[in-house]
Design a protein around this nucleic acid. Structure first.
Length: 426
DNA sequence: TCTGGGGTCCTAGGACCC
DNA sequence: TCTGGGGTCCTAGGACCC
């Protein structure tokens, strides 16, 4: 059996932890640049605040109802996420937890006796809440997809399930799947949902009964076959090895306001490269390929149309590296190649790929000077930038004016990761 | 006269997830 | 004025190899 543990309205719950006055009150958290609503509490949901909805479209509703609004505070959420995951590992066993996202983890419960699963799930929920202050929902089922189904139903019926639902017997599974629209299944997105409804397949139970060969033809090949099997309680999506590292690292941002000059684009790209390189070093990898992209607003559709167009350039590095300066040197010419005067730039980004472990670099015979890996200077810079102010130490190419920096006007303090922002009790 | 079979690697693009 | 950011997996098709 598998469990999925999922933090309720995670970003909002983190904010509430340091603002007890907001308990039971509507709260929302905004995406970067204060653009969209990415987390909302049940109270905000009830008021009709949409998920992933643009902030400015909901502003009136939010102000009228005195909804508390926060910019995203990733330092805070990252730290609390770590505490939740540590708690789960403590309870379920170090190697039985797969961190799936900042607010979700799959647990392998295959060694837990069937009749104690509900007890175990309840313990997980209560302990996480007691140790971290973050409320979670727990769904348990024979496969990952079914555990997701259970988790969703546990949230829909909070009073009945108290946030914990185990589906195990054939009857429980059938009932749960009949209550779940195909749109709400993990692995069915907009495209497939549309296709399925077209064919008269509306709920999970109907999809479960479709033949595998049909799924192979019409639902993305083996992906569809796996989904059908998972719905039938046959686990085919394995637990991931916790030691696996990322295969790609990206840092991309909307600019705080549109940008027109090459100098500004260069600054932004250098800054994003430095940030991506930090992430790279954190997982002890080096990158073999760097891609740079920008999004322009093509005005051919009329001056006020939103018609974003992306342009890409990439280069393979002579030798894989995690050195910020080397990566910036590779990135800037790509930015220059992309730049065309007169266009309006909305967004930029850097993607590192071809990642391999730092201790297994394939060296290039034709590279004369090898950059020293495990550079103590960079380590020191990473430490300073994390524990004090971001970019206390930065490369000159990342710029000093930074007109393009994103808006984040409503961010709370980084109570748990910055010395100068600790929570104070007077 | 007439053109196999089996394989790898790479890229682009589509679908999905939170 | 105004719409986020960061990932994964799979497939198809082209280039190339023996």
């Amino acid at each position: 059996m598998r469990a999925i543990v999922d933090c309720n309205s995670f970003y909002c719950s983190c904010e509430r932890l340091f603002r007890p006055d907001l308990r039971e009150k509507p709260v929302v958290v905004l995406s970067n640049n204060d653009g969209c609503i990415v987390s909302r509490t049940d109270e905000a949901k009830k008021l009709g605040v949409g998920m992933a909805a643009p902030y400015y479209q909901n502003r009136e509703l939010i102000e009228k109802n005195e909804v508390a609004v926060f910019s995203s505070n990733y330092h805070l959420y990252g730290d609390l996420s770590m505490r939740v995951m540590d708690t789960l590992r403590e309870l379920a066993g170090e190697d039985r937890v797969e961190v799936y996202s900042v607010d979700e983890a799959f647990l392998d419960l295959s060694t837990i006796p069937a009749d104690t699963l509900t007890g175990m799930a309840t313990t997980l929920k209560e302990t996480v809440e007691q140790w971290t202050g973050i409320a979670v929902s727990v769904g348990v089922g024979p496969s990952k997809v079914l555990s997701k189904v259970a988790n969703r139903l546990s949230k829909k019926d909070k009073k009945g399930t108290r946030g914990v639902l185990v589906i195990q017997s054939p009857e429980q599974i059938r009932e749960a799947l009949e209550r779940t629209a195909v749109d709400d299944l993990w692995g069915v997105g907009r495209q497939y949902a549309m296709k399925l409804h077209h064919l008269g397949i509306d709920n999970g139970w109907q999809l479960r009964n479709m033949p595998e060969e049909w799924a192979r033809k019409h639902m993305g090949g083996v992906v569809g076959v796996r989904l059908i099997r998972e719905l039938n309680g046959i686990p085919c999506i394995p637990m991931k090895d916790p030691l696996e590292t990322k295969k790609m690292i990206a840092t991309t941002r909307m600019f705080g306001k549109p940008v027109f000059e090459l100098a500004e684009i260069r600054e932004a790209i250098a800054t994003y490269t430095a940030r991506a390189a930090e992430k790279l070093r954190r997982q002890f990898s080096v990158a073999g390929t760097i891609q740079v992209y920008v999004v322009t607003n093509d005005t051919r559709k009329g001056p006020y149309e939103y018609n974003p167009q992306s342009r890409w350039q990439y280069t393979h590095l002579a030798e894989a590296t995690d050195d910020t300066a080397t990566l910036i040197r590779a990135a800037l010419p790509l930015a220059e190649k992309l730049y065309q005067p007169g266009l309006k730039y909305l967004k930029g980004g850097v993607v590192l790929s071809g990642l391999v472990p730092a201790d297994a670099i394939q060296s290039n015979l034709f590279v004369q000077e090898h950059v020293r890996q495990d550079n103590p200077l960079l380590k020191a810079v990473d430490n300073i930038n994390f524990s004090y102010r971001s970019d206390v130490v930065k490369y000159v190419s990342s710029g000093l004016t930074r007109n393009w920096k994103m808006r984040q006007e409503l961010r709370s303090k980084r109570f748990t990761t910055r010395w100068d922002e600790l929570y104070e009790i007077h």
